[in-house]
């Protein structure tokens, strides 16, 4: 009895340690970034345009570039991804060959490293379609990258909608589209938003594929045909080219803050929404 009990305690301790390691990693990274970058963080750092390749001034244009690119990617990927998910869950029959192909493609896309998308975007969008290094090229590339995540999570969210809702709605004389639009999508929305949040995280963190497609210009992007530099690309170049490690950490800190804010807002809207429903 004693040995078994000891073993139980030991294993409990190991699992507890695993949990602790996760917390420790997160805290030390965020803490380290914060301490290293703290000295450069100020309102000016956030709101001024970079000067001297980022050695002076702030990072405002890269914040705008990040938001611009992410928003454009979402504008393309959310409708297409959600549309594909609706098609797969609501309209396609399980036996449909096309549906199986869509599923397989989405899975495969999810496994392709982002740099491959970057290379494709560079050759096809930037050069062949002559879109140049631009927010449009970068946005399309990002959209392709996040499409599988959005499709998959939307599919899973739709799957959780009870079949009774569909039956009740159809039995009231609603069409399939009315049912999808008024009952299924509202119910699935929190799940769909989770996918969008994950995608935003990926989009904000992307570097290599964006250097190839959106360029690394520090100018203020005005239209979608302008090149831009995202915060992550900026921090990569600041560190890589030895411009300023401190400013790289400052940028990193703001990237984390941005992601936390987006997560917070998404959670908030989700909670508002589900409170209104339940």
């Amino acid at each position: 009895m004693g040995a078994a009990k000891m073993k139980d305690k030991l294993i409990y301790a190991l699992f507890w340690l695993s949990g602790l390691i996760i917390v420790a990693i997160l805290l030390s990274i965020v803490g380290y970034v914060l301490i290293k970058g703290f000295s450069v963080i100020s309102l000016d750092f956030l709101l001024q345009s970079p000067r001297k390749a980022g050695a002076e001034g702030g990072i405002f244009t890269t914040v705008i570039g990040t938001l611009y690119l992410t928003l454009l990617a979402l504008l393309m990927a959310v409708p297409i991804g959600t549309g594909a998910a609706i098609y797969l869950q609501e309209y396609a029959s399980d036996q449909s060959r096309f549906a199986r192909m869509v599923n397989l493609t989405a899975e495969t896309l999810a496994g392709i490293p982002s740099i491959i998308f970057g290379l494709f975007g560079f050759v096809f969008l930037v050069i062949l379609l002559n879109l140049g290094w631009s927010i449009l090229s970068g946005g399309i590339t990002l959209a392709i990258m996040i499409l599988p995540t959005i499709t998959r999570t939307a599919q899973e969210a739709i799957l959780t909608v009870p079949v009774e809702y569909r039956e009740n709605s159809l039995a009231l004389g609603a069409s399939k589209w009315q049912t999808t639009q008024k009952v299924i999508l509202p119910f699935a929305l929190p799940g769909i938003i989770t996918g969008v949040i994950l995608s935003i995280g990926r989009a904000i963190g992307e570097t290599a594929a964006l250097i190839l497609t959106a360029g690394s210009s520090l100018g203020m992007p005005l239209s979608v045909f302008d090149p831009t530099r995202t915060m992550s690309v900026h921090l990569y170049l600041l560190a890589m080219e030895g411009i300023s490690l401190e400013r790289a950490f400052g940028t990193a800190f703001l990237v984390i803050v941005l992601i936390v804010i987006i997560n917070f807002l998404a959670n908030l809207s989700m909670r508002r929404f589900s409170q209104a429903m339940h």
Binding site: Y165, L170, M277
Partner: peptide
């Protein structure tokens, strides 16, 4: 079918209110 189901309503086993 829509007109049919409008005329012939249905109540199911499990009361399934919509989340509204």
């Amino acid at each position: 079918v829509v007109a049919l189901r409008k005329k012939v309503g249905m109540v199911f086993q499990k009361p399934s209110v919509f989340p509204m």
